[in-house]
Design a binder for these strands. Structure first.
Lengths: 140, 140
DNA sequence: GTGTATGCAAAGAGTTTGCAGCACT
DNA sequence: AGTGCTGCAAACTCTTTGCATACAC
């Protein structure tokens, strides 16, 4: 995957902050990273990218549909690579782990609910909160 | 409904801010109000309740399960009366209107998805975004 | 009277913006 | 060479907290 090219294809210049941020997402597949996470990861590599720049880059990538922005809890936004396939999330309230799932039956029912109310569906978010298998077995 | 009593039953004193805030929710059934909304509504009645107090009261009511706190978009939290029955939401991205729905098939599938992954379900949020019937007909 | 709740002021966290100089194309 | 991008500083929004006074019980 040619990351600079992918960036240029969005009409953006392939600058160091943009390349490294996008690489980070490819290096952490399935991870949901916040602006702060990214800032720290870059700092660890001794790359000096300031937080406002991280926000700007993330916002541009989200606008370009390279990333998807989620706000699971209200405190902070997290981003993940847009692999093209929609999915919903399972979040562990103990360890913060985020898993993904897709259930066609639920998707169909959602469309039915919307149609029944003459509601033109654009997007949806479904998030299940609870204890992941590991945390659940540790608790009891 | 004796509002002061309901408040005292939570172990809280029936003060003016608490009584008026809870009354507001009863006066606006089905509405989802933010701290700012409430502050303005109270200001209109010439009741001087400062924003931090509104936040404190809302937080206490949410802790007492009188209210439910939602964070549909990340910008601000909104609250609604807890009528005891779970439901999901349809939000119009044009006019901001919030409707509620419940679909047993979706609820069942969610439990199945969680169980299949040995995930101990605590809560979930499902929100459909799109155009409500009115806005949809106005657009085209 | 006692202890809790409020008003006020200020702090905090996450995020956004203005601007001047630097870097990608 | 020119325009877009970044760093820096500061602002902004929503929310929380500390403290002294005021009120509910």
């Amino acid at each position: 995957m040619d990351i600079p090219k992918q960036i240029r294809d969005c009409g953006l210049r392939a600058t160091l902050p943009r390349v490294r941020v996008l690489q980070l997402f490819h290096e952490h597949p399935g991870k949901h990273l916040s602006a702060d996470d990214i800032s720290h990861l870059l700092a660890n590599e001794k790359i000096n990218v300031i937080l406002p720049t991280v926000y700007r880059v993330l916002m541009q990538f989200a606008d370009a549909n390279i990333l998807i922005r989620h706000t699971f809890d209200a405190e902070r936004a997290v981003f993940e690579l847009n692999e093209g396939s929609h999915h919903d999330h399972l979040i562990c309230t103990k360890c913060g782990r985020v898993d993904e799932f897709i259930d066609e039956a639920i998707e169909r029912r959602q469309k039915a609910v919307a149609q029944q109310r003459r509601f033109v569906l654009q997007t949806h978010t479904l998030t299940l909160y609870g204890l992941c298998a590991q945390c659940a077995s540790r608790v009891r």
